[in-house]
Write a protein that binds this DNA or RNA. Structure first.
Lengths: 236, 236
DNA sequence: CGAAAGCGTGATGATGCATAACGAACACGA
DNA sequence: TCGTGTTCGTTATGCATCATCACGCTTTCG
């Protein structure tokens, strides 16, 4: 891993990063996930064909941006989570959820890029970063539940019934939960993610624009609390 | 309102409807919200410029499709809701939520059109159908809560604390709730919508593809139940 | 120093949006 | 029945973007 990059390689990496940054900036400015090569090139003082030295086509750039957005979101959430006491499960949940929402509101285009519809003309590579990052998000959540179970503070969720199919998925696809986190808590875990994701989407895409910012913030925190309590995660 | 349309007007209306239907079909086929005038025209056996007799430009068509998608979703939800006993609050909630999700999975592009990011190159008309239909969705939900309160079955939500800002928004923007539905229940109502929306988005956009269909269905229903119980709506 | 690789530009072709000008088909009244 | 004007659809044109190619300049390194 001794990244002994040559001068050229460093130059190239810098240019690639500049392309990404300019693309993100244009997305922010124009409020869309659509990026024109022409605009990026103009912004960088280059001609459009030059960009093809760095990305095969528009899809390649999008794929890269999507991957970066994933790790960016994951990083933000992980950082917020780790700023809290590992044993303060409720606090970690609130912190992580807040980071999720803050990023979505700050970067609605990038958020749409990874968790919305595919961009026109772009087809997601199979088994690409999408599934990868989705698992990352899940693992951050499941770590929280595992820790809660280890501490003995994970209570029964509001809805205890779990279908056999659901339970089978839990043990098959997420063996890391082991015996600590029962299927009904696994189910509740996904529900907390859904609630967080839902309130975040509605907020980031303007469905709450009729409320004041303070009300939106309060609504968000109360929603996270409700989700946590319903899942058996202690709050307050 | 005696819609005595002339022959020409009927013909025109039929053509407009065909354009919409072909556009929706292309969206489904290509899996994007991007529609090319060229493709629509080709599909209809016309030349692209002919479409400009019916829509000023691509944005006008999109605006129309968005408006139609809104009423379509609203109609589906309302119909599912009304097939249940008006006093079976929990049943109505499950039915309405299921219709919401079914439509989103059946028409992911149209769902993205109305509740996702704006389409590239398209700017939503201010005060357009977006806010209008959002209120419609809210009113369908609030009717449910009002009825529950009238029947005396609306219990306290899981989280009872409400910020002053949030309570003010409730009485200001949704006076129809009156004194029957307290602010904490109004807050809980939005939370149920968020949960429904979140699980629907994750499902419709493939985040649950690693689960079996049966598990997804079971997860969805259990999520709706959790949301209802957390909001004080009786289930089962 | 000289060869090779990397980088950027201008020229070119393909596609899609949008407008303008022209011609065909239809409904309507005389 | 027959003009007449409206509606509708076509061909032709201009413009912007994506993508590729061939060529020249700069940097790197033996």
């Amino acid at each position: 891993m001794t990244a002994t990059l040559t001068r050229r390689e460093r130059q190239r990496a810098a240019t690639v990063e500049e392309i990404r940054e300019v693309a993100r900036g244009l997305m922010r400015e124009q409020g869309t996930t659509d990026v024109r090569f022409t605009d990026i090139a103009k912004e960088m003082g280059m001609t459009p064909p030059a960009l093809y030295r760095y990305y095969a086509d528009r899809d390649a750039l999008l794929t890269d941006l999507i991957a970066e957005a994933y790790s960016e979101l994951g990083r933000e959430v992980a950082q917020a989570r780790e700023e809290r006491d590992p044993d303060d499960i409720g606090g970690r949940w609130i912190a992580a959820g807040t980071a999720y929402r803050d990023w979505a509101r700050r970067e609605p285009q990038q958020f749409a890029l990874i968790l919305g519809m595919p961009v026109p003309g772009y087809v997601a590579p199979q088994e690409g970063p999408t599934t990868e990052a989705a698992k990352d998000a899940m693992s951050q959540l499941s770590a929280l539940f595992i820790r809660a179970a280890e501490l003995g503070v994970l209570k029964e969720p509001l809805v205890r019934e779990v279908s056999d199919e659901m339970a089978a998925c839990a043990v098959d696809k997420h063996p890391e939960l082991g015996d600590l986190v029962p299927p009904e808590s696994f189910q509740a875990m996904i529900q907390t993610w859904a609630t967080l994701h839902g309130i975040t989407c509605l907020d980031a895409y303007g469905q709450f624009d009729w409320m004041t910012d303070e009300a939106r913030d309060a609504l968000f925190v109360s929603t996270l609390k409700t989700a946590a309590l319903a899942a058996g995660i202690p709050i307050d």
